[in-house]
Design a protein around this nucleic acid. Sequence first.
DNA 1: GTCATTGCAAAGGATTTGCAGTTCC
DNA 2: GGAACTGCAAATCCTTTGCAATGAC
Lengths: 152, 152
Amino acid sequence: MEISFSDIKRKFQECGLKTTPQRTAIYDALLRSTAHPTAEDLFVKVAPQFPMMSLNTVYYTLGVLRTSGLIHEVNIGHTRARFDANLTPHHHLICLGCQTIVDVMDPRLNRLTSPFGIPKDFEITGHQVVFRGLCGSCRRHTGRSINHSSSG
Amino acid sequence: MEISFSDIKRKFQECGLKTTPQRTAIYDALLRSTAHPTAEDLFVKVAPQFPMMSLNTVYYTLGVLRTSGLIHEVNIGHTRARFDANLTPHHHLICLGCQTIVDVMDPRLNRLTSPFGIPKDFEITGHQVVFRGLCGSCRRHTGRSINHSSSG
DNA sequence: GTCATTGCAAAGGATTTGCAGTTCC
DNA sequence: GGAACTGCAAATCCTTTGCAATGAC
């Protein structure tokens, strides 16, 4: 989907956020990216338009967008936060070799039966499936020796 | 299951790891814990037995155990790594309020149908389901105002 | 005009690295 | 005996915080 400036502006207004050029650019970059960029990825992407911008602004902006519910923070590894502007319920596939994250949109996964063996007073509000494996490139290159970290 | 010193020693030997008192204590503490402790949690737990031990040793040991496949790193939030010595395929339930992690052992979740819409050459080796919600205590205390971070 | 936002610098917390001394095999 | 392990300190990396200046509403 192509998102225009006025779409973004409207979204910001709905959330009571001011529409600044930096904020617009960061959110736009996130909307357009299919990878799941880190704060620094976004900084690099947006920096050419705003040479004066600081990484801090990216962090601040991502925090605001997250609090407003406009984006999700995708915590796969613990080392760096990654962000996602795709709010459609979806799941992820992670390559153990190169750490690439791919969206999995299979709607069957959205309807998991409620698990048993959990505390009775726990109210489940959602779930997410994380698949792990090796992408074609990493299978070819590494054959085997895979970084064993990050399970989950 | 009760795990004895000789069990641990054998496991270490199978992995080619030296059996040091610190390492044994850390692994033992992890085996006994049902929470999913952070490196520092383990450090605090083991420190009374080894007043001279440094947090660094805990990190080093956890790295070795993880590389050897004896433990898993559970990455829920990105802020702190959590570890799990329960290698039985299982899933997790996380309280959005207090961040408590509960193991979900429902075996039906282990047999998810392979998703569609993923790259053809991607080889999936495993998956994990993360449920999110509110534990009873947090539901009672907060009513609503829940920390919105950490989705996925 | 006011208050959120920005930029810069500095702090903070978690984890890793370097290195010398120790200990298990 | 030698490689792996431990402890300590310093470094690194990611993220947050403080504060003055700016700009959107």
